[in-house]
Design a protein around this nucleic acid. Structure first.
Lengths: 243, 243
DNA sequence: CTCCAAAGGTTTGGTCCTGGCCCATTGCAC
DNA sequence: GTGCAATGGGCCAGGACCAAACCTTTGGAG
């Protein structure tokens, strides 16, 4: 009996339906928006009523989550017309000193495998599509943002880097692919938080980012995939070395 | 302001936290297990207490879901020692006459894009890995199963086809990739339910399946990707034509 | 034949979450 | 300045969901 194989597939289908409660999930989403640079410092989040509807969560729950995120210093709420919840200009640093929770090798390989599949696939798909002028502009802007970070601003670099990778997924036109990339990116960022950021690596990444975007913009799908593969291999090697 | 691009990424991060309620989610998972062939006709599901724990759902909720699925004729419960919940030997046909709910073109392309990224990526990743003898055997068994369906058994073919594709994801060793493939596969199956199954297509698929598995077993990652790409292109063309 | 283990079936009390409603604050339009 | 609309803030009744019991059925072990 191939019970082994069956168990793996079964684990995929019978995985938990709801990982956390609504409050915790909502907090994670807000932090994800901030850490991936989807909501930049100073920017306003959607109004509570709208955001609650979008997240499929009651306003009470959303407000509790916002409260928690605000207490941690990530956002700030203002009342009145033209009020709202705003991302803090000065974001707090890492809340996670990684208290012994080093990810196992299996977990690491799991994330890296999924990441490679999703991100290289997204790069290829983006290049294979005929992009609208808005899409092309979007990519260029994100690329510039990412290569244009003041030295010493590691956290900001991480956000813009994520935002660029996310933009590549966006221009594939596939909403579910974009969601998947956002999730895997969050996982990768958590891992990256555990290792130091080196200047040489950033410069190297900048160049690779340029190559990737160039390949996508010129519609060269194999080149886009190859460039993304190489880029990801670098990070993967770094992570494997440190963990 | 690049509000357009921002909106897409925001939609990914601010997507609903909880799509359905626990009951509905659980029903979907049970049906997914059956339709993907993870639980074959006649097979026993895990005991309620264990399954509830795995799904992260209370036993009460799980039982309600099982009850619903049993009422629809998919499973049957037996009490007493060596009892349990068993997948029906004769599964009901399609419950979905697709009442005008034809998927929009955008949705279709969304699923197909994600599918291509995930499944071709999985094939490549599987080929790039050094597979254990158990993995190799698993792939071979699933391949044989899929090419070995009695004529006229379209529903059974669909299940074994899914099971083979799922096996490819399994042998990548990445649990999250396997989950993602299972989900996208469910989406594709729903689309496929709307179009007829033609004998010639099955034969063609059988041959492509052989090529894919062969490439994976021989460790030829580019060939595995290429073979999977071709295979998926066939189905994609079929779907685009019918919808 | 008796006991027991493993499974499904049932009940209860409590917690989380929601949907709806109203209040408080703010700044622009008039 | 007055009105108003958009926003965050607060409250409550009821439903969904859960954890933890306990009951019933079944068939093998001894």
């Amino acid at each position: 009996m191939p019970a082994h194989g069956r168990r793996d597939a079964a684990a995929a289908v019978f995985r938990p339906v709801r990982t956390r409660n609504a409050f915790e999930e909502t907090v994670e989403r807000l932090l994800q928006a901030i850490r991936l640079g989807v909501a930049a410092p100073g920017e306003r989040l959607p109004a509570e009523r709208e955001l609650a509807a979008r997240l499929g969560v009651s306003r009470v729950t959303l407000r509790e989550a916002i409260r928690a995120v605000a207490d941690a210093g990530y956002v700030e709420s203002r009342r009145g017309r033209y009020g709202g919840t705003f991302v803090a200009e000065d974001l707090p640093g890492l809340p996670r000193p990684r208290r012994g929770a080093a990810p196992s090798g299996v977990e690491l390989e799991d994330v890296l495998t999924l990441r490679r599949v999703l991100e290289s696939g997204a790069a290829e798909a983006a290049a294979a599509r005929s992009l609208s002028p808005a899409d092309r502009q979007h990519l260029r802007v994100r690329l510039t943002d990412a290569t244009d970070v003041a030295p010493g601003e590691e956290a900001e670099y991480r956000r813009r880097d994520s935002r660029l990778h996310l933009a590549i997924a966006e221009v594939t036109g596939s909403a579910s692919l974009t969601s998947a990339v956002a999730d895997v990116r969050t996982g990768v960022n958590e891992l990256l938080d555990a290792i130091p950021l080196i200047g040489a690596n950033i410069e190297h990444s900048d160049e690779q980012h340029r190559l990737i975007v160039e390949a996508i913009l010129s519609g060269d799908a194999p080149a886009a995939r190859a460039a993304m593969d190489e880029h990801l291999d670098g990070t993967a090697a770094l992570l494997r070395g440190f963990l």
